[in-house]
Write a protein that binds this DNA or RNA. Structure first.
Length: 603
RNA sequence: GCGCUCGUAGCUCAAUGGAUAGAGCACUUGACUACGGAUCAAGCGGUUGGGAGUUCGACUCUCUCCGAGCGCGCCA
């Protein structure tokens, strides 16, 4: 039974997806990857022709350390220091290293030669892609994210899925994959009987007016209240569900009205956020309704279906309920209806067979892990998800308030998305007005938007997605520390150097960069690590890794900025440092953009 | 009860099985005629929840216990 949580399965994923998405090779600028490639044949030779990982890592004792001698010594027998010596003696690193040192039990500490660093950097500086190669193995990736409900307002619960999904989309696309965004909105199910009847009672015009105000929750609650208060209404609502599922034209039209008014609200939020989701990406649950009977039919033909308490279910092995009995995945309810599981299976079929998906990502909260494990297992049993094709639940934790309880508004409900963003803008405005009261009205508005939204996004993305995270206004909007505003400020500061000197940034692009001081060297090495940062982020679908990179890049820059005068330096140092500053700003802005965050040139 | 996820500095978080576990905030101290001080530097702070195991090497993998959160048949 393929259990997605086992180590073996995870390593399979790391290899198949990771290797496809990762791409080392001659175009890779990261020196770590370069020496790893250089060492590969040496390690293979030492290992009797079989490849062995040199395990090259960044080091705090040198620029890089080669750890591979230790496990290799274990495997083939012998002294790890002798193997390290053989690695050094092979001479393959001589072209890139100015110093090689064997240390401890058998580590090889590598110091890159300044020429090597400068050459790599020149290549990157002249490259629009900043050294990040397009993948040679483009995949079709379907990303299922955001997924708000029709006739319900987006709230804080949609924050993480929307932002993580958007960031992954941007990175995957940049990497050269074919990315299909799917916004699996909740636009189907029994609540729609009630909602449509309420729409009818209210009258279309009044309902439309009501909904277009953005008060979707109010509408939903009224419908719910009517449903709870009147048996007559309940009967109509149930009948309406039947009509909806039966394809009744008038009912469909009314349903479409609800969907349209809701998606208008969603789009307002997406635009405000700068998230790449449009009506073209809508793939609501209704989309998959026609496929539902086929899901059942196929499962039946495969003899996977069992009847249990009147429902049609599949028993994927390895899942048990509270009594220790096999846990079923219900695909057709006793009354004949379909449910969430059916629709997710339909999605798998559609995404694999119609869209040709190699990889399906579900950016959905961690609470649904068991559901997805079961769905994926059943899809594998049915042969719809045969390797190397795969589905991954990109799970994330809950958003907590500073009291460590689920974040709620004062009224006790999940905080509405729009309220949250409004507050972000208000708080950003206070900060901006205090720091820089001289901005023009246009600049002010634009800056507030970039800072406020960027702060929320960065706070959201910069911690490990699988953990719950604490939502703290004061921290995320601080200009100090690992925050969005700090990074944006770092970018603005670099731009300011060029403004002050009245130099076009593009004019220094690709000019030679001289590596002299430790700060220049540190910054240069960081810049060269950008492709690897993106790779490691995508291997685990963890945007916080790119956040960490961008933050470290910013701190490396400030160290450089403190120690290395740019404009006051003599030529050719001055131009070199300008080029280094420009490349830093480009990388910073690019990394932030992959996270969906704007990088203002001044603020 | 079973399953999953999590537990790292006072707080918020990092750390692809590698050497001495790193940042930020807070706190203490220092740098100010400043290429944007919306800054920088230094210090303080840890038996990585406890215990056992695997390994040359464990925050990381395995087991167990403790604690927190979530899930466990017809909601989505």
């Amino acid at each position: 039974m393929p259990d997605r949580s086992t180590i073996g399965d995870r390593s399979r994923m790391a290899c198949e997806v990771g290797c496809a998405i990762r791409q080392t090779g001659p175009t890779m600028s990261d020196p770590i990857a370069t020496i790893s490639d250089l060492l590969a044949p040496i390690f293979a030779a030492l290992n009797g022709g079989e490849s062995a990982d040199p395990t090259v890592r960044p080091s705090d004792r040198a620029d890089a350390q080669v750890n591979g001698a230790l496990p290799l010594a274990k495997r083939i027998g012998g002294n790890p220091r002798d193997i390290a010596q053989a690695v050094v003696d092979s001479g393959v690193l001589d072209v890139v290293a100015s110093e090689l040192e064997i240390a401890g039990p058998g580590f090889v500490n590598v110091t890159f030669s300044p020429e090597f660093v400068a050459n790599q950097l020149a290549e990157v500086s002249a490259d629009d892609r900043l050294g990040v190669p397009a993948t040679t193995v483009p995949k079709t990736v379907v990303i299922d994210y955001s997924a708000p409900n029709v006739a319900k307002e987006m709230h804080v619960g949609h924050l993480r899925t929307t932002l993580i999904g958007d960031a992954l989309v941007r990175m995957m696309e940049f990497r050269g994959h074919r990315v299909i965004r799917e916004n699996h909105i909740g636009d189907w199910g029994t609540p729609f009987g009630m909602l449509i009847e309420h729409l009818v009672d209210l009258g279309e015009e009044r309902a439309a007016a009501h909904l277009s105000l953005g008060d979707l929750d109010g509408f939903y609650k009224e419908a719910r209240a009517a449903f709870d208060a009147s048996e007559e209404f309940q009967a109509r609502a149930r009948q309406r569900v039947v009509l909806l599922q039966g394809g009744d034209a008038e009912t469909q039209r009314l349903w479409g009205l609800l969907v349209e008014l809701s998606t208008k609200h969603f789009n307002t939020v997406y635009e405000m956020l700068g998230v790449h989701l449009t009506d073209d990406d809508l793939a609501g649950e209704s989309t998959y309704q026609p496929l539902m009977p086929e899901v059942i039919e196929r499962l039946r033909r495969l003899d996977l279906l069992t009847e249990s308490d009147g429902a049609d279910v599949v028993f994927p092995p390895g899942f048990t309920n509270r009594d220790g009995d096999p846990l079923p995945l219900i695909v057709q309810k006793g009354a004949g209806g379909f449910n969430y599981a059916t629709s997710d299976l339909a999605c798998v079929i559609d995404r694999v067979e119609r869209l040709g998906a190699d990889l399906i990502l579900y950016v959905v909260d961690a609470g649904q892990q068991q559901h997805f494990q079961m769905v994926f297992t059943v899809a594998e049993m049915a042969g719809w998800l045969a390797p190397p094709r795969e589905a991954v639940h990109v799970a994330f934790g809950i958003v907590l308030g500073t009291d460590r309880k689920r974040l709620r508004s004062r009224s006790g409900e999940p905080m509405k998305f729009v309220e949250l963003l409004d507050e972000a803008l208000e708080r950003a405005a206070v900060a901006i007005d205090e720091k820089d009261p001289d901005l023009t009205a246009d600049q002010r508005g634009e800056t507030i938007h970039m800072i406020g939204i960027g702060a929320v996004k960065y706070a959201e993305l910069s911690t490990d997605r699988v953990k719950d995270y604490v939502f703290d206004w004061d921290r995320m909007l601080s200009f100090d520390g690992n925050t969005g505003p700090y990074l944006q400020y770092a970018h603005a500061r670099i731009c300011s150097i060029f403004r002050r000197a009245d130099i076009e940034r593009s004019s220094v692009r690709g000019l030679p960069i001289l590596i002299d001081t430790p700060q220049e060297r540190g910054l240069a090495l960081r810049l060269l690590a950008y492709p690897t940062a993106i790779d490691t982020t995508l291997e685990t679908y963890s945007p916080h890794k790119l956040c960490t990179y961008v933050y470290e890049l910013a701190t490396d820059f400030t160290a450089f900025y403190e120690h290395c005068p740019v404009l006051k330096a003599d030529e050719p140092i001055r131009t070199s440092r300008l080029a280094l500053a420009d490349l830093t700003a480009r990388t910073l802005a690019h990394g932030l953009d992959l996270l969906g965050i704007d990088a203002p040139e001044q603020m």
